[in-house]
Amino acid sequence: MKFIKQLAIILTISFIAEMMEHLIPLPIAASMYGLVLMVICLVTHIIPLEKVEGAADFLVEIMPMLFIPSTVGIMTSVDALKQMLVPLVVICVSTTFLIMIVTGRTAQFILRKEGSGKKEASDGEKKDTEVQKS
């Protein structure tokens, strides 16, 4: 019964999210509204973590399986896939290397800069977090 209650909360958020998708004229999928809404509800303690975590962890765990039906749909778009197979492979491979290197090096650069100039950094940090909030 506890599980059903948790599922009810998650499904209600999903329902509100789909309503938002219809009402807000932005190209954003319902699940994104739901995700952000759920984070807000958790942070503000409107929904306590323990009221949803059992069902949520289960859903996240089985997520790869949930993609099976739509991915099997690739059998209906074989022609479209064939047309872009070479660009797809080249783009996926080259950008994955690039993104990993750029993200890692940038994060490491920021971490080490912060580490070396602790005193200056603590001054600058306040400003930076303010900028991010705005």
Partner: peptide, 18 residues
């Protein structure tokens, strides 16, 4: 099965919150 995709994506909020 696909029906559970939206609720599962919403549930990604939980690991993020942690």
């Amino acid at each position: 099965i696909s029906f559970f995709l939206t609720p599962a994506t919403v549930s990604l909020a939980i690991p993020l919150y942690r």
